[in-house]
Design a protein around this nucleic acid. Structure first.
Lengths: 187, 187
DNA sequence: ATCCCTTTTTATCATTTGTTAATTTTTTCC
DNA sequence: GGAAAAAATTAACAAATGATAAAAAGGGAT
């Protein structure tokens, strides 16, 4: 998935502005297991996934919560860094070798302030992430862990093959042992 | 909390633009228990709470999930209507008589397209809601129901007095009976 | 103050999920 | 291909939560 398509799927920008925008991106490749966002540091870039898969998670005491998975076309972002310019609560690690598009938050901010099309792209970007976040919240409140697992299977059928079971479990809010039991019971 | 303060706490807009913006708002009063957003209809307005408290919820089969509570300064919005212009999944009801500021989505959209300050206000608005949504997700994944209740108490101490217990329980993802048990156990 | 209706608490039992640990299966690397 | 490591499954018991029902407490209207 190239950067042009990624930007377009969020909001259509006039040609000249889009070119300015695209010029700010740099393409990088990072290895599997790389910890690209650390909760204790302000991250000064935002990334889009050209190829690969990533996982956002938070740790508290010794517990770990998976917040989201990102696949091709999705974003790798520390919301606290991006929005509040503060260190935050999110870690993001790459679950496969990834090709990423990288842009600095500083460049983004300055584009937002100068170009109304890009400002509206930024608005749409946040809005789409917001809808996703709300859906995640609702489906994790709803029904049993079994139902949530089945829904995840339906919505992201390839995820289960790409991601270790324990991480899926922590995304569903249950333990790995519990998810394994659920899988045995629905066969 | 007046509309001027509400807008300012999201993003500072130049004076002339803000005046244009504020002129689009209308002030209304609605009674307790009024269902202001219905999941089966596209809602063509967005509301801000001047005074009162509201609850967003979804129903599935016969289960009901509380998504969020809104207090003074918060927003009453159907994300699907606002962002996708589609009927959605959210219902919002007023838990007290409320004074609200109302603006049409159409006016908002047209301000976004014409005024870069207001476009950036819209971006910041979505970004702040996004951070809130992510926090909700994380805290509902974390720890026991008891811990989540205690955290809610700390963060929104007045909420418990204003809102029936069953609704708080459905926000925490547990039953009302279970929450009552928890309250008995922590005294 | 009293009655009615709603909300909250308490109790009991069933079900689900957590915890720990051992075993099996799969993956990785030499 | 085989050894070592990682991941997934299974088992047994403990703990938390759900479901249902009944009792107690609280609130509003007359």
């Amino acid at each position: 998935m190239n950067i042009d398509q990624i930007l377009d799927q969020i909001y259509l920008i006039n040609h000249a502005s889009k070119q300015k925008f695209i010029d700010c991106f740099e393409e990088i490749r990072l290895p599997k297991n790389h910890l690209i966002i650390r909760s204790d540091k302000v991250e000064r870039s935002v990334f889009f996934i050209k190829k690969g898969i990533a996982r956002a998670f938070s740790t508290f005491d010794d517990a770990e919560v998976t917040i989201a998975f990102g696949e091709e076309g999705d974003t790798i972002i520390s919301l606290n860094s991006y929005i509040l310019n503060q260190a935050g609560y999110e870690n993001i690690e790459l679950l496969e070798e990834c090709d990423l598009y990288k842009i600095s938050v500083k460049d983004l901010q300055s584009l937002f302030e100068k170009d109304i099309d890009i400002a509206n792209w930024g608005r749409k970007f946040a809005e789409q992430e917001l809808i996703k976040a709300e859906h995640r919240f609702i489906s994790n409140q709803l029904g049993t862990a079994t139902e949530r697992y089945m829904e995840l299977l339906k919505k992201h059928p390839t995820l289960i093959q790409r991601v270790p079971l324990g991480l899926v479990a922590s995304y569903l809010g249950i333990t790995q042992v519990s998810l394994s039991r659920i899988r045995a019971s629905i066969k």
